[in-house]
């Protein structure tokens, strides 16, 4: 979880700008309790927080773009290795996970709506559902990782070429109708799995951070923090969550579905 410090705190700030506890203690009607001292109006504050979140997502795009560049180059160089590597992934798990993440995105969008319309109980429900779906996603990811670990498909010293040199010995490769790869091609599957673990790992790290914040949000939502007319934090977290969803949509297409025909 390399970018966790910035991530958590980064979103924390946006959280705190919505945090009534830290706000200026002004009783003036034009000064809602959540308005920080240096802003002129709540609108300005929400605008600034929203824009900051978008800029943060911009940096996230650039963060992933390095990996996508690497992916694109090596996929073109080592296409056969990438195909064989992707055949080791389970489309069923992948599709399930995509659906799970899309559903969680939906519940998150609903949560934002609940927050904006002041429905506290529904908000808590939506956030909890999002949390559970996110956990489910990570669980499935864990199962997939475990499988790779068992088959020695984790790049590094224990990496095994068995499934690619002798596809008949491997159920997944047999099912996909793989033919044995020559040694040099088979070696390049390690590049595929490096990228697979990097990209899904970075994505999972973002999920974990998101789940931590979600847990915190559920507690605060139960206390009614986000249904009192100030939905900025839920909204901004929603942006983050949807961004994770979008990254996965691409990862799914690029890593799982390289060539199934």
């Amino acid at each position: 979880m390399p970018d966790s410090p910035a991530m958590t705190h980064g979103t924390q700030e946006l959280a705190n700008s919505a945090d009534p506890g830290n706000a200026a203690n002004s009783a003036h009607p034009e000064h809602p309790p959540y308005l920080l001292h240096h802003f002129e109006s709540a609108g300005q504050q929400a605008d600034a927080a929203g824009f900051a979140m978008w800029l943060f997502l911009l940096t996230e795009v650039m963060f992933f773009s390095g990996l996508f560049t690497a992916y694109l180059i090596y996929r073109n160089w080592y296409y056969r290795a990438f195909v064989a590597g992707s055949h080791q992934l389970s489309v069923v798990w992948g599709t399930t996970n995509t659906a799970v993440l899309i559903l969680s995105s939906f519940t998150m969008a609903m949560a934002v709506w609940c927050s904006k319309t002041g429905r506290r109980r529904e908000l808590t429900l939506c956030l909890t559902l999002t949390f559970l779906l996110g956990l489910g996603f990570l669980g499935i990811k864990g199962i997939e990782y475990h499988e790779k670990f068992e088959k020695h498909h984790v790049p590094g010293r224990h990496y095994s070429l068995q499934s690619f040199l002798y596809p008949d010995s491997d159920a997944a490769a047999r099912a996909a109708g793989d033919r044995p790869l020559p040694l040099d091609d088979a070696r390049h599957t390690e590049v595929y799995f490096s990228l697979y673990f990097l990209m899904t790992g970075m994505h999972a790290a973002h999920m974990v951070i998101g789940l931590c914040i979600l847990g915190f949000m559920i507690l605060r939502a139960r206390a009614g923090a986000y249904t009192a007319g100030h939905a900025t934090f839920v909204e901004n977290f929603g942006l983050y969550w949807h961004f994770i969803d979008i990254v996965w949509i691409y990862l799914f297409a690029l890593l799982y579905l390289i060539s199934r025909h």
Partner: peptide, 12 residues
């Protein structure tokens, strides 16, 4: 971990 994204020996 010894992944090979930049390692010419591994095809990077």
């Amino acid at each position: 971990t010894g992944i090979g994204v930049f390692d010419p020996a591994k095809g990077g």
